[in-house]
């Protein structure tokens, strides 16, 4: 049952987006998210929607996967949209007690909903087409200038990689320990909050103990292979910026320009 949780949603493939340099993907995604908030009216936001739709098509990932990633935030979308219904001017549509719904409010809530959904879709494109290792690699490379400030960038990236690597292992371990304690009659499904919290002790303690054991083993194995941190360490897969990356940067830049122009020439749609 725990194995149903999929962390790290990478879906292997060979699409244009899969082949892009992870650094470029990371930066572009970040820029796109910024531009979702730069887009001040419905038309400029639709530009970003077009961009994300294009990205989804290019990623070669089935639309169903994207819908799945949206399912998790549906509550937030509905909640914020409903709240925003009551803010805005324009013609009065409905009056519930002191609350008034006006046309402006309706447009506002649609706008906010599209914003949140586009935002999630952009990050979904990134995580679907980039493996966790590629992502940490990219982050290490992007953060490299920070070494000037004595920030141990390589060590941070290595910690992230190891953490990601051990998520499935620890899930499996948790599953095993849960089964073993259930076989001894541990009751995790009933009782009040306090009782349920107490029922976690027989699972958490063995899990901690085994995590420490694994950490020791891993440290030993890394030292046996002469790991001594990032200094002078070469990469097996070095990252390269290709024509594809430059091309996609240009396309995105065109969309950004459109967003700015639409913001300027169609201000205050509502």
């Amino acid at each position: 049952m725990l194995s149903d949780i999929t962390l790290g949603q990478y879906l292997p493939g060979n699409s244009v987006l899969h082949r892009m340099d992870p650094r470029v993907k990371l930066i572009l995604t970040f820029a796109c998210i910024v531009f979702i908030f730069v887009a001040g009216n419905l038309w400029s936001l639709l530009c970003m929607v077009a961009l994300v739709a294009g990205g989804m098509l290019l990623s070669g990932v089935p639309v169903g996967q994207y819908l799945k990633s949206l399912r998790a935030i549906i509550v937030i979308v509905v909640f914020t949209s409903v709240l925003n219904l009551f803010y805005g001017n324009g013609d009065l549509l409905l009056k519930i007690g002191v609350m008034e719904i006006r046309t402006g409010g309706v447009l506002n809530s649609i706008f906010i909903a599209i914003r949140i959904i586009t935002l999630i879709l952009f990050s979904a494109i990134l995580t679907f087409t980039t493996s966790p290792t590629q992502l940490t690699d990219a982050m290490e490379r992007i953060m490299k200038p920070l070494t000037v400030f004595h920030i141990k960038v390589h060590e941070i990236a290595m910690m992230m990689t190891i953490a990601l690597r051990f998520v499935p292992t620890l899930l499996e371990e948790t599953d095993k320990i849960m089964s073993a304690q259930k076989a001894r009659g541990a009751d995790m499904e009933s009782g009040g909050l306090v009782q349920r919290a107490k029922a976690l002790i027989p699972i958490l303690i063995p899990l901690f103990v085994s995590s420490f054991r694994r950490a020791y083993d891993l440290a030993m194995a890394m030292e046996c292979r002469c790991y001594h941190g990032g200094e002078g360490r070469t990469k097996m897969k070095s990252l390269h910026i290709t024509g594809l990356d430059i091309y996609s940067c240009c396309v995105t830049a065109v969309f950004f320009a459109a967003v700015i122009l639409l913001n300027l020439f169609l201000p205050g749609l509502f």
Binding site: E173, K176, I177, S179, A180, Q181, K182, A183, R184, G185, D187, I201, P202, I205, P206, V209, S210
Partner: peptide, 20 residues
């Protein structure tokens, strides 16, 4: 089902990992 688990005891592989 818990009653069944008391009647059918189960020792897993490497059971020492369940001590707490």
């Amino acid at each position: 089902i818990r009653q069944v688990r008391f009647q059918v005891g189960m020792v897993f592989q490497y059971p020492e990992h369940q001590l707490f």
